[in-house]
């Protein structure tokens, strides 16, 4: 055992820093949730809302609109964030998030098709889009495997696939009936409107299950961060862990997408922000999940209440994400990561 006061002191300090950061994020999320539930067309006080929820009163605005919306926002945020973070960790590149390499748009294609042409209900749409997302991810992976797997080839193939899927989506939107188009466009921008209570339990279960599996793989992920070779030496079954984690992330992404539409930038932003805040001395699952939820709820609040027109949450997060994206690119290219 190494017995060095300074090292242990440093570790302790970072642990403390980490817990404080998590705590602060929790508080911010709580405040945002309160704001989101109380403020809107009709304002309530917090006490009123609490009593409505506790007594199970039949208040339409709170119980049918704002509460499902907020819960869906939190869990979709978590789903996007941890899935994005997993992709970024496994592919070793902060820019390799599922919304850039085409996995999300693969499931969006299926969802748009089901919504516009088959008029299916949301539960079945979720299942079909999960299947489509898995298929898209598998195809992109297979296409990028030639003479061995390469991260850069995977990313480039993903960008190509993304363009292909976008064209398919555009095709369907153009073919759809005129009055369906604004709905589809709004949904495609990422939107928490029209979420009903019956889709929520499944979402919550899926998110919690996937989160549990990922936390279970925690040690292996931390080894994988060192690189494939070191992970193998440390006794990680790289291909099994990688497949399992990819599978979970795709399920999460596709599920969240089928409910809220592809909310821009969440998958891609949460991981790097969490790493910046918590300085990466833990696997940043908890922190990036919190960041994801905060971003979605804050984006939704801004889009609903603070802007002249009501914007879908995806537009707001897309706008918030753009400058950070550029900053990240500059930093990454300067550092020569790729």
């Amino acid at each position: 055992m190494i017995k060095n006061e300074i090292i242990f002191h440093g570790i302790e300090k970072r642990q403390k820093h980490y817990y404080i950061a998590i705590f602060i994020m929790f508080i911010i999320l709580a405040i945002l949730v309160c704001l989101n539930v109380t403020i809107g067309e009709k304002n309530y006080t917090l006490a009123e809302v609490v009593s409505i929820i506790l007594n199970g009163e039949n208040n339409y605005i709170i119980m049918k609109l704002r509460l499902p919306r907020t819960i869906a926002g939190i869990f979709c945020g978590i789903a996007f964030a941890i899935a994005g973070n997993t992709f970024q960790t496994l592919l070793g590149n902060p820019l390799a998030s599922p919304d850039i390499i085409g996995v999300s748009s693969g499931s969006t294609v299926a969802a748009v098709f089901c919504i516009l042409f088959l008029n299916l209900n949301r539960g079945i749409v979720s299942i079909i889009s999960v299947a489509a997302g898995l298929l898209a991810a598998f195809t992109i992976y297979k296409l990028s495997c030639k003479n061995g797997f390469s991260n850069s080839r995977l990313i480039l193939t993903g960008i190509g696939a993304q363009a292909f899927f976008t064209a398919l989506i555009n095709w369907m939107v153009m073919r759809a009936a005129e009055y369906d188009v604004p709905t589809a466009m709004r949904w495609m921008a990422g939107n928490l409107n029209g979420i009903t209570t019956d889709t929520l339990p499944l979402l919550v279960i899926v998110v919690i299950l996937a989160f549990a599996i990922m936390v279970y793989c925690n040690q292996s992920i931390r080894s994988l961060e060192l690189g494939e070779r070191y992970a193998t030496i440390l006794g990680v079954n790289v291909s099994v862990v990688r497949t399992l984690l990819m599978f979970c992330s795709v399920v999460l992404i596709a599920f969240a997408t089928s409910i809220s539409g592809p909310i821009a930038s969440i998958a891609f932003l949460s991981g790097p922000i969490a790493t910046r805040i918590c300085s990466n001395n833990q696997t940043n699952y908890t922190s990036s999940a919190l960041i994801g939820a905060i971003l979605v709820i804050a984006g939704d609040f801004i889009g609903q209440n603070l802007l002249p027109t009501r914007y879908p949450v995806g537009i707001v997060t897309g706008l918030l994400g753009a400058p950070y994206l550029v900053y990240l690119l500059i930093r990454q290219n300067k550092g020569g990561v790729i």
Binding site: L95, D99, I100, I155, L156, I159, Q162, A264, G318, G321, A322, L325, V326, L329, N333, I338
Partner: peptide, 11 residues
């Protein structure tokens, strides 16, 4: 490609 895709998404 990544810079292009990212900027294009942002725009």
């Amino acid at each position: 490609a990544i810079s292009g895709a990212a900027i294009s998404t942002a725009l």
